[in-house]
Design a protein around this nucleic acid. Structure first.
Lengths: 228, 228
DNA sequence: GATATTTGTCAACACTGTTGACATCTCAGT
DNA sequence: ACTGAGATGTCAACAGTGTTGACAAATATC
């Protein structure tokens, strides 16, 4: 009779998920890995979904530690990149792309960090909330999209990208001229770099909005004096 | 013996999916709706995955028609909003958030449209490709995140948002001061508006990058002369 | 040490996607 | 119009899934 705890289960679950992949991950396989009856897991988690959420939060451990303090941009940027990395190393989190808000500790820590940075930078409540949602949606969404690719070995991945490019190149160039023309430029660099580009442009836009709102309060948002 | 075609199957599948939701959608239920044996579907689609992709593409029909011609920004913006709407009305597409590139007709049309707009606006190949990936990742990702919420009736949805806000408000304010402070501002307006804000800020950033690259070619990207 | 609660085990239910064998239908070639 | 061939619908079955309820063993509480 093996003694189980949520922590032990989550650790084993993450390992199993790493071995067999998200699609093949099942409660029964987890039971085997734990040398316990699969249904014992239901004494610690109400459902597989709840377990997945816990796995997701676990993989975010430490993601908000020791962030750069130079500027809100650098801090938020680094945090988003770390969230993405965590998501991609542990594809469990891909399943976190289900409309639920952060409830677990690490998730809450992320929210708190971003909101604090934005507020301290001078965002009013409305802009801070909007900006928070914006960076999170891009980060989580991008990670979800890239998760399947990230879970394959680098060689396969490059081969797949290559294949996709040649698919585009072989399209009918009278119907899809730009796609054909730009085929070799698509899926440029690594997925990480593409994400960083998108994130940087979004942060550019947010910084501009912040600058606008603090110079002409009331136009883009409410005044920045926010002492309560 | 009912006569099936891919079109008929996809139509019925979208209806069934609308009724029972993504999670509960199954080949057997689709068979019932078609008054045919469930396995007959496998004569027209290699797998359930392939069917889901086809459903996704179907729901994107017409999404690239009659777009505004005033500017590349307006065009791309409107297109992204339509993609999102299509995604949310037919949550089938939420499943499209699997690392595969566009292959179906409507998907290709979207890629072509965005690339054309960016190229015509003066983006070089590299910037166009990056910008394309950026807006698509935000759009698809955001839709995937909001899909579950969008699939519930508006009253439930508002109730859920309200509940989330009060969850934040009830956090320990010594540990999560900003989250508590901003609780009432979180999940502001509709999810659509939040997306539009994020998209607009990203487009701001992309427009700035484009302006930079055309004034000082070679810094952000290659020169803009791209006749072949 | 007896009692109550938690936790692991087992069998089972109601599903799922998918396959192979068989039957039936549609249609081209004569 | 007949025939053979290929496409398509049907059926039974496989291997797997998440989850539940009844029972037993372990642990904690008094």
């Amino acid at each position: 009779m093996a003694r189980l705890t949520p922590d032990i289960i989550v650790s084993a679950a993450i390992e199993v998920m790493g071995d067999v992949g998200f699609e093949q991950f099942s409660v029964r396989k987890l039971g085997d890995a734990l040398d316990a009856d699969p249904t014992a897991i239901y004494r610690h988690f109400r459902s597989k979904d709840e377990l997945l959420r816990a796995m997701g939060d676990r993989s975010l451990a430490g993601v908000a530690d020791d962030l750069p303090t130079s500027s809100w941009r650098e801090c938020v940027r680094e945090l988003c990149i770390r969230i993405r990395t965590a998501n991609l190393t542990h594809p469990a989190l891909a399943s976190l792309v289900r409309g639920a808000p952060p409830r677990h500790h690490n998730e809450l820590q992320i929210t708190e960090t971003i909101l604090r940075q934005l507020r301290d930078a001078g965002c009013d409540a409305e802009l801070a909330a909007h900006a928070y949602h914006a960076v999170i949606e891009l980060t989580i969404g991008s990670a979800a999209i890239d998760a399947t690719m990230a879970s394959m070995p680098p060689s396969d991945r490059d081969a797949t990208y290559c294949e996709w490019r040649s698919d585009y190149a072989n399209l009918d160039s009278t119907v899809f001229p730009r796609s054909v023309e730009l085929a070799s430029s698509l899926y440029p660099g690594t997925a990480d770099r593409r994400f960083e580009f998108a994130l940087d442009r979004l942060l550019d836009g947010l910084a501009a909005a912040l600058a606008r709102s603090s110079s002409t309060p009331g136009l883009t948002g409410r005044p920045t004096g926010y002492r309560q």
